[in-house]
Design a protein around this nucleic acid. Structure first.
Lengths: 325, 325
DNA sequence: AGAGTAATGCTTAAACTGAGCATAAAGCAA
DNA sequence: TTGCTTTATGCTCAGTTTAAGCATTACTCT
């Protein structure tokens, strides 16, 4: 434990999210200079020991430089340091002889795609390309979710030892809610980890050729970036329930239905319209601006704006998805 | 941002918590070899790059070695990397010429004090010695909480610029809930940060002499360890609401009232007895063992044990403090 | 036996949730 | 203009959950 720290590097990665056209999106830097394959990667960089006073300040200025993005809400997600879950080529063009180890501190940041300049190598991608089973807005259940459920079911029954089967069953139950229909939208990371362990999604992909993914066409990401993305989505889904971060993703003015669509995009499920609107205005989260949006196709919708005072009034102002108990 | 990482070290720290005699406690290694002053420090060590496959495994084995403790639930808390909030002497006996920077990955771990062997330099301390304003179980409001509130109130009114006053007011409102009586037990870190910024509690203490603490006798800790402790307490308070981690702190069998006392100790507040018990057994969290505890002074209390099956049945099994909305 | 002390059981009003019906205000076509 | 379609918005209702407190039970101690 008390080695001298040689061969250790600290990196920062960022999952920078936005919601555009009812799709949650993430900034990637998929240029092939970054790795062997053309897999998408999150913005990633090695931390300079002295450039910045705090990690978060370092992140902000580095992202600003990279992508000319203005980050809104930012939060640290997790620090990953597993030895066996990184692609070498991403980090050092020549994998060093002495197997340098990288600790990466991952951040979640919110912004608006429309407002971004879109720097050089910056691409926005739909996050459900990487985690398709997380989008449950379409048919019930969606094709790729059903595939995931089936595959996990098989994985649970595979082992010989009964104890092992039960262990798997319990974890699957927890993450996917197998027999009962309780799908907890927040357990994104738990589901991803399970799919990963079950060999259903690939993370590292040294060959750049075979992407085992059990039938649903999910895209891998470089290194352990898909895990970071899963962490980010799970965290954000939890966060919107008790903190008004959703407004970081909205334009200045919006209709309640647009707000609902944005929440649904993140949560990956559909909400009851009337109840959603009741929750929002009984929560004091928004105020009328006076304007209307007549482009609805029906009765024009009133425009609202985030009501900042709610921060002083309520302890945990958020949007509250159904079935929270 | 793309420096070469020289001068960067990664450390692990652990806030190892237990509840003993209705007091939340934490493992410290207060021996003076660790620093100049006799301030308590959390277990802390520099990470050896290759010893362990994952950070958490590294933590477990290192703690095991240090303190002969068996850790139960463990979770990563946060990675701290602020430049100006560490004591030098704690990290390297001789502060290096080139100002080595330390990134420390902090963990929360739960255990039972009674079961610990108590290794060499290991001391258990009441956590409310370090964060006295967080304990609201006594009179309402407690002396040190009132002192904190007063001091924060003064701090809010201090600045000349009105904008600054309002900024402070908003943060204070958020963390302490000033005029209304909403004290959110989870916002431990937010309160600590505010007190720190207001100069009411000291973190680093180079001289080892002056501990400004605005009247309430709170103890500092080495380096930024008190911040880590605050993070740990806040996280744990949140966690018990939706995850049955409280049982990691309980003996095998217990009465509902003992369970309540343990929850109260962590949450820092008193609960309604009948409602607490209703919540617990309607939540399916426990089952009768058949035994009774006759040492109550009144009617003997039935003994209960944690009911593991709840993990399969409920999505977010926890104890739920009042006023959660 | 009677008083004291805690555990345990139960009631009630208020608040909240999930679901759906009903109405309002637009555009569009006959 | 009227009537139809579409979406926004208003409102009701039954089932749950919560906060608070009263009532009863089962022990010990005197």
């Amino acid at each position: 434990m008390t080695g001298d720290g040689v061969g250790l590097r600290v990196g920062l990665s960022a999952a920078i999210l936005a919601v555009t056209d009812e799709q949650p999106r993430v900034v990637t830097v998929g240029r092939s200079e970054w790795g062997r394959s053309d897999k998408a990667a999150l913005p990633f960089g090695i931390l300079d020991a002295f450039a910045h006073r705090t990690l978060e300040l370092g992140l902000r200025s580095w992202v600003q430089e990279l992508a000319e993005l203005v980050l809104g809400y930012t939060e640290q997600l997790y620090t990953f340091g597993d030895r066996d879950r990184v692609d070498r080529p991403l980090l050092t063009a020549a994998p060093s002889e002495d197997e340098e180890r990288v600790i990466s501190v991952a951040y979640l940041a919110l912004t608006r795609e429309a407002e971004s300049e879109g720097g050089d190598g910056v691409d926005w991608r739909d996050i459900y390309r990487f985690l398709p089973w997380e989008d449950g807005r379409g048919e019930q259940p969606s094709r790729s979710r059903q595939l995931a459920l089936d595959a996990i079911g098989r994985w649970c029954r595979k082992p010989r030892a009964r104890a092992e089967r039960e262990r798997r069953e319990e974890r699957a139950q927890f993450a996917f809610g197998l027999d009962r229909e309780v799908w907890d939208s927040e357990k994104v990371l738990e589901r991803y980890e399970l799919l990963f362990e079950a060999g259903l999604v690939a993370e590292s992909d040294p060959d750049g050729s075979s992407w085992p993914d059990g039938g649903f066409s999910s895209r891998p990401m470089a290194a352990d970036h898909r895990r970071i993305l899963a962490t980010a989505l799970g965290r954000l889904r939890a966060k919107i329930k008790y903190r008004p971060v959703i407004f970081e993703l909205m334009p200045e003015q919006f209709t309640l239905f647009e707000l609902q669509r944005t929440v649904e995009a993140l949560a990956g499920l559909r909400l009851h319209k009337q109840n959603f609107r009741r929750l929002i205005d009984r929560g004091g989260l928004v105020e009328l601006t006076g304007g209307v949006n007549a482009q609805t196709g029906g009765r024009p919708a009133k425009l609202y704006a985030f009501r900042r005072d709610v921060l002083r009034e309520r302890r945990a102002p958020g949007v509250g998805l159904p079935g929270q108990r």
